[in-house]
Design a binder for these strands. Sequence first.
DNA 1: CACCATCGTCGATACGCATCGATGATTCGC
DNA 2: GCGAATCATCGATGCGTATCGACGATGGTG
Lengths: 340, 340
Amino acid sequence: MPTSKDVAEAAGVAQSTVSYVLSGKRPISEKTRKKVEAAIEQLTYQPNAGARALASRKTRVIGLVIPFIPELEMASIMEFVSVIASTARQYDHDILLVTEDEGAAGLRRVVSQQICDGLILMQVEDEDERLPVARTLNVPVLLIGIPRDPSGLVCIDADFEMAGEHCVRDLAAAGHSVISIIDWQPAVVNRHVNYVDRFMGGADAAASALGVSVQHLPGGPDQATIADSVDKALAATEGVPAFIAPDRTIQDILRRALASRGLTPGVNVSVIGSATPTLADLQPIPLSTIDLRPAEVSRRAVKIICQLLEADSQGPHESLELVPTVITHRSSTLRPPHGA
Amino acid sequence: MPTSKDVAEAAGVAQSTVSYVLSGKRPISEKTRKKVEAAIEQLTYQPNAGARALASRKTRVIGLVIPFIPELEMASIMEFVSVIASTARQYDHDILLVTEDEGAAGLRRVVSQQICDGLILMQVEDEDERLPVARTLNVPVLLIGIPRDPSGLVCIDADFEMAGEHCVRDLAAAGHSVISIIDWQPAVVNRHVNYVDRFMGGADAAASALGVSVQHLPGGPDQATIADSVDKALAATEGVPAFIAPDRTIQDILRRALASRGLTPGVNVSVIGSATPTLADLQPIPLSTIDLRPAEVSRRAVKIICQLLEADSQGPHESLELVPTVITHRSSTLRPPHGA
DNA sequence: CACCATCGTCGATACGCATCGATGATTCGC
DNA sequence: GCGAATCATCGATGCGTATCGACGATGGTG
């Protein structure tokens, strides 16, 4: 493995000059720069990360704390991970996986050992045990999700309130006066992630503003419960029933429950689910969706933390960013009476 | 951040003594060890990863190269990732994410910069573009999957051949004489991952040994094709039809196709799919499965590469490990005539 | 033409740890 | 009870980079 000293010798300059060529922190003449760059090329020199970290006190690595909860939709988590990793590379950073099973101690470890310059925490709960630790770490921490008390923390999340509002608003516009929301499955609700409340709050607000009624029904834990929820919804509805099912993991079950009752989405029932555009189109009946935009949330998360790293900020920053959600009509919802 | 020098001062010993207490590479008296450990505790000392890497030439980080291919079942990839990360921690290592979009250059980067001591490549294809690079890297590389030419490489994978054999053998034992295998979806087949061939090979071998016939049918790209495959299978079958569907992403579609033709798994049709036990039980009709044991593959993968790292092996190792698959009868297959 | 900025480069040092050789303190054998 | 072997610890050095102060060269000014 060549070192910057080797490069310096090959180019006939001092090691420090090589370093300055690379960092651009001091002016270098065109001639010298060319020589150095040629030597770098020829030796296929790559700076040693350990030495760089030791000298600069920056590792250019971000720790990503991932939840591995069977009930969550792992495919969706994976989308976060994927986009976070690619985006980090665009900012010339790498991603280190920090597993949840190490608990809060894991955060302290990777920071104290200076393996990471900062952290991204996914799937933050209302009273997350990682937060007290996160607040005391002297590195930037970015939360995906919003805890009950976000003071002193930097958070980003999809705008679930907007999502709830839009779902109700659009179903109301399509002529539905009673709208049934199938809750997230109990495993999610019991985790106390407040996006559930935010979504429901938005839906309720929109409902009372528009004079329609919304009922909340349990989303599990089993198929019988969901089937029961559907029956309750139908009993409480006059006219064409409407369902909102923001939890992806139960959409299949809902679909089957409706089918077995003779209900066809887009014909005699409206259904809004949550999915990425690609997945939505793959459904037997293309699903009208509320897109919670995991990719966009991920991109912004990385951007924010990289800015914090850049700024080398000491003071306890605090911010909260909500990513607008997008509602898309496909074939599973009734069309509004007039084209709007 | 305290350093080992701070610890040494607090304990009244030399810095090198602290280092030896930590590594155990030289004998230390009980008394001194106690003092040092107390100082470590009190200062909450954690060794600096950069300095450690620089001095020892070991980062204790393993690069994990993940595919982000929409067609793959991301939930299953996530299971690999999760288990790999946890297992790595058991060996006191961390996992760095290397995204596929950096291509083979990414591998070279993390190794030349000495961010990683070794690599795990997931989802290895027959003629994987990463292999030529992998062979020239002077660090241990572990492949999950088997390329066409595994010479000079260390590979591990589920025993797909055994999986194919077992599926056919068990369906034959249940009395089926014609067995239809729905292929992986074209996106997977076109990637030229040879587990498809290995699975089919095992199935064919078992079929000819047992005197039953096996037909292969396309698994996509769309629902119409799969429905068509089902019809072809039914047309070619006398008696109770039997399906093997190793690709998880198409199982839903298959289930619907069968249902709409009046076929109920376990009653008048047999279906073997691929899923973890938990998921299989969640199906409307608990699915008989072939478990490809991603968790076990992951654990062994980490174990192998950690052993290679330990050994600090220079010579081009080469090995190939197959993890036995497990077939489990639930309710979607007919029972064999006699209780076995 | 002497003087002073500015520019470009160099040498030296620090970062925190692992490791090697050396040294003082013990213990053992005879 | 003296040399040899063993044990526990120390001091010094190197790992490869970033960065600071210094210094020679260059160019502009009066």
